[in-house]
Design a protein around this nucleic acid. Sequence first.
DNA 1: CTCATATTAGTACCAAGTGCTAATAGCGGG
DNA 2: CCCGCTATTAGCACTTGGTACTAATATGAG
Lengths: 194, 194
Amino acid sequence: MKKTKKERQMALTASIKENPFVTDEELSANFGVSVQTIRLDRMELSIPELRERIKHVAVKTFEDEVKSLPIDEVIGEIIDIELDEKAISLFDVKPEHVFQRNQIARGHHLFAQANSLAVAVMNDELALTVKSELQFLRPVRAGQRVVAKAQVIDRNPEKNRAYVKVVSTVDQATVFIGTFEMYRMTEQSEGDGN
Amino acid sequence: MKKTKKERQMALTASIKENPFVTDEELSANFGVSVQTIRLDRMELSIPELRERIKHVAVKTFEDEVKSLPIDEVIGEIIDIELDEKAISLFDVKPEHVFQRNQIARGHHLFAQANSLAVAVMNDELALTVKSELQFLRPVRAGQRVVAKAQVIDRNPEKNRAYVKVVSTVDQATVFIGTFEMYRMTEQSEGDGN
DNA sequence: CTCATATTAGTACCAAGTGCTAATAGCGGG
DNA sequence: CCCGCTATTAGCACTTGGTACTAATATGAG
């Protein structure tokens, strides 16, 4: 059971990594050594105490929240908007947006930027996408900034429709084109249950 | 300065919400009351102590990590796959995926599920989306489970293309149809720099 | 003035530690 | 067998950021 000190420390590191919420006491029970040994191990490995570990995780989340919350509402940052006419947004491609293998941005992020811009440009915020056609013209990589320009190109008020074209560019080069047929949900018509 | 108890408690709630990492001592200094008063306030408002607050945030993040990491690789859970032929994935729509106003799932989540399934079904994992056409047929709401079925409907090996059709349903009803023209990145052709 | 509510103070205690000292165990050499 | 060394264990004082509880003091309303 009790292998070497090194082995225990390996296991301990793994154990804490997997579940940072474990106390020294629990660890000491798990490894069949005294609490003091665990403490010494943590010192040698410079693993902080429970509370600091938890705090660290919490701070990380807290910072993430600020950046992931707006991301969920509108993907990218809207820098210009004329309701019912046109809008522009920026989206910085980060490592988390690309395929690990080839560093190329995953399509759905470009779509998300374009689609949420199309939603935003509609005066009526209760807008849904009905149809869309997309062209992914050039690969986009981490570190690049995508500029999406949305333009309302047609309207059909009777059918509550509007047509939006979004062109996304990186350094002037067009990387993506999407056309969106949008449905406006004006006041009434909530009776689409389920 | 010292307004009523109610006002202080309001401010206190806001203060903690904004920065959960604040201690009673700091709060007591901010509000010019004793630490005990802060404690009494927390009790009345049933706001837990610092450590519990931090822990709560940390646990939340920790859980998120497990669910957001795979989400970034493949959106939804693949439950069946025949490479180069077809694949099926499930995606449970959660509150974070819908518009707050009308509880309808944002289009890019449905697209992401379909698109990443289309990528996955390609034998070559280095696949990129070139074009696509989407139809959002019925709104999807939080709590519903979307079943996406992808089928490779055509291939063009010379041009390194494949065509994938994805049909997503909720309780047998079709909610989304997408066709994807995919580009296979076989070994060579890495010279598309930037 | 008196009663009630609000606030402050003070004590004992807890969890999960740090820091430090000291004792003990186990083993390899010589 | 004893020496030296590392590893392990024990024990105590102290720290943070609290809880739980009791008691004293303000303060304002009737």
